[in-house]
């Protein structure tokens, strides 16, 4: 029965990937990458249960943290990177 969840998550992963490949803007891709991160995190936990070794969650926690760190890195870069500065923005984070 865990297999059902894994199949469902794989389908979701495929859809998210489709959006990442299609774009069209970079933000769509970042959003899709965020979704891929979330889904693969869930997938990881589900695989842990399927193979009867639910200790894999440490890795899932790392995934979750990295997902956030990665998204923020990309976005901070967008606000201050070479694609144009937004002068009136005040950095809050």
């Amino acid at each position: 029965m865990f297999a059902t969840v894994i199949i469902a998550l794989l389908i979701a992963l495929a859809f998210a990937l489709l959006r990442a490949v299609l774009g069209p803007t970079v933000f769509d891709r970042v959003q899709a990458a965020n979704s891929v991160g979330t889904i693969s995190m869930l997938l990881l936990v589900a695989i842990g249960f399927l193979t009867d070794r639910p200790d894999f969650e440490d890795l899932a926690i790392v995934y979750g943290l990295l997902n956030v760190v990665g998204t923020f890195a990309v976005l901070k870069f967008f606000r201050h990177g070479d694609l144009g500065h937004s002068a009136d923005e005040t950095e809050t984070s």
Partner: peptide
């Protein structure tokens, strides 16, 4: 893990939306 997502995902979504708007989307 649930708490992590609960706190982190809206912050990421907000930053994403803000960055997109700031970049003129």
């Amino acid at each position: 893990l649930g708490l992590l997502m609960f706190f982190a995902s809206p912050a990421a979504a907000h930053a994403l939306a803000k960055a997109a708007l700031a970049r003129g989307l």
